[in-house]
Design a protein around this nucleic acid. Sequence first.
DNA 1: CGGATAGTTGAGTTATCTCAAATGCAGTGG
DNA 2: CCACTGCATTTGAGATAACTCAACTATCCG
Lengths: 249, 249
Amino acid sequence: MQAVQHLKPAGPPANFQGCSFCLAHKAGWCATAMGNSNPRRTPVNHAVETSSRTMRDRQMIYDSREFSEYVIFICDGKAVSSVALPDGRRQIIEILLPGDMVFWTALLEPVPNRIIEAVEETTYRSLKRTEFRKLLFKLPDLFNMFIRLCAHEKTKSDQLALTLGRRNAQEKIARLIVNLAERLAERGLTEGQTIRFSLRLRHIADATGLTSVHVSKVLGQFQRAKIIDLEGRSLTIYNTLELQRIAGP
Amino acid sequence: MQAVQHLKPAGPPANFQGCSFCLAHKAGWCATAMGNSNPRRTPVNHAVETSSRTMRDRQMIYDSREFSEYVIFICDGKAVSSVALPDGRRQIIEILLPGDMVFWTALLEPVPNRIIEAVEETTYRSLKRTEFRKLLFKLPDLFNMFIRLCAHEKTKSDQLALTLGRRNAQEKIARLIVNLAERLAERGLTEGQTIRFSLRLRHIADATGLTSVHVSKVLGQFQRAKIIDLEGRSLTIYNTLELQRIAGP
DNA sequence: CGGATAGTTGAGTTATCTCAAATGCAGTGG
DNA sequence: CCACTGCATTTGAGATAACTCAACTATCCG
């Protein structure tokens, strides 16, 4: 693992290698891909040509050619990746944070029917898929990490199914908050118990399979119970234990 | 692709290579793994040592050592793979048919927290994971198929999330039936519009995130509307178009 | 035949949804 | 700076899909 401690967001925890964030680190894409302005860049062993783009708040990218030939890597901001029905119903599959790769399977094969929506101003880079394949065969460590990523993502989608199918509104929303806070913490993007919470109600609704009205009511409960506080776009967790208890195992 | 036409269940459709069934075919595991008694066995290029076992109806296998070091390949019967909560709630992730591999990611890494339950008498074989890894690197065709499998499985789990989060009971159940019928047809396990339907109500409930009582009511509606008929363990689809219309896109 | 398991049906409950109105808030143009 | 417009959020009232409970029937298996 490279020396990346000076980077902000911080590197992934050393003991956990099952996320796309780690994979990108390993591939040496972070310095190029994260677009950080730190003058002391990490050594980039296997730099890949990238071009950086910005999406405005609420801008969507549909299943486009860009997604067929490139892999998207989030540098800054926040976005959601979802699947939708023709009648407008949609399900958010994951919330994308800085450092996340969109469509890990897209690293190798195009993935159909996906929509990305920026939740706030978001910059990203596109990496050529073919480049990645080459790299994967060349570097056994990277390949092993990719394998781990596959397994980890599978576990994640199983958990998502369990949550959507079997948990109630409180549990779903508590999990979403806990999960988001953890992932932001991994990336060094928290300030104590406070995180930037730019998701609209409709994002939370589409991520949990609820309506935004109901999400509002549950968040209201949580606030009245002094478990969390929401002020503008920032969320503070007052009672972590209680929130985790509600979120369940 | 090898000549497997004489096998029953029939081989996967030539134009579709994104399922574990196809992968097993490609790896030459079918003849050994399917446990068919046909004397004209397919040529097995990369045969793997396997041992065959039987699970009785309702028998469970939990997250065991067997699952950590071996990959399970269903030869005959039907089983479900699920994740569960300590309080007993569970979500079925997939229905396993003859030819299916359990835990495709388990081909490379162990997958935690899974339970397999046999729905009827089911035989399976265990394949050593390490064997598979070797094979994967040796055969580029197999590797490519594995990549496609990853992408396909991801698409499937996204659809599952969409269904669980955003579709109603009728849609969920109609999809389950349509989907199951298609998969059985691919394997040559249908008789006209009739399929063997050994799932209990509670399996359908756990697969769709509903209760078995409600599943019973919806199935009752479908029968009264002459869309399907259920007699004992066999299900006949009378009105495929209507069922597909309800299932939606 | 008896006991367990599975399915059906009805009645009443509840979690979540729909609709709608009121409020807040951010960006825009004058 | 203000009024205006277009979102996002909150809140309440009423509707409904799905749930729980419970009793009854059917089916399976020894």
